[in-house]
């Protein structure tokens, strides 16, 4: 590779300077959401301490495999999104139009497992009013599931931008993509936060003894 080639390879990549990944407004929302869920986690552990026996007995009816498989689904999905964002920075945009749908497929897998789990619980007569543990279980996982559904919408949007970017890669040396990166990073950060919240919910609800 000649030095000229090296130079052009560097030129093709969107420069990364220290910056907030995505819109600052989106990060305010992300941090607010993390704060609220942080309080949820603390409230749950506090009330658990007041009635450990009830919480342990109720937890024993949960299927840990569902919780773990869903963690793996979200982690895999986050990896696809991270790789897609990296690909878009390269301005050549080859992988992103494929990786965003794969991330959505993992999100869909999460949803299917969640619905199977809810169906099992409800058909066994376990509902939000059964006891305090199940109240928290349904509220926390339900709110998180809502975040997953919103995230799926965000991923559809990112996919559309990636497909558009792929057609624009050679137009004005990828300037269009550079402009889009703030949106792409905002959406990706939101999706990673959905993953992050589940990483804490999984041990709290399914594993804590």
């Amino acid at each position: 590779m000649t030095s000229a080639d090296c130079f052009s390879a560097v030129e093709r990549k969107v420069e990364i300077k220290p910056h907030v990944p995505g819109e600052v407004g989106v990060w305010v929302f992300i941090l607010g959401d993390m704060l609220i869920f942080g309080l949820f986690f603390i409230v749950f552990v506090y009330y658990r301490g007041l009635n450990v026996e009830l919480y342990s007995h109720s937890q024993a009816t949960l299927n840990q495999n569902y919780g773990a498989i869903n963690t793996l689904f979200l982690l895999a999905s986050s990896w696809f999104v991270a790789m897609a964002v990296d690909d878009m920075r390269n301005k050549t945009v080859k992988l992103a139009p494929v990786f965003f749908p794969l991330a959505m497929l993992c999100g869909l897998g999460f949803g299917v497992v969640k619905i199977i789990e809810y169906r099992e619980k409800i058909s066994a007569g376990i509902t939000i009013t059964s006891n305090d543990f199940y109240m928290y279980y349904y509220i926390f996982t339900g709110l998180h599931f809502l975040h997953v559904l919103i995230g799926m919408g965000v991923l559809v949007f990112l996919w559309r931008r990636a497909r558009f970017a792929a057609t624009q890669a050679d137009v004005r040396d990828g300037a269009v993509i550079e402009k889009d990166m703030v949106l792409i990073e905002s959406g990706a950060s939101y999706w990673h936060m959905v993953d992050l919240l589940w990483i804490v919910l999984f041990p709290l609800l399914y594993l804590l003894k």
Partner: peptide
Amino acid sequence: GLIIIAFIKVRIVIRYFMEVREAP
């Protein structure tokens, strides 16, 4: 230990996936 593992995982997600290691 499970709680500590979870929060180490969360920090990795924040730093590497959410790219906060490149942030101000």
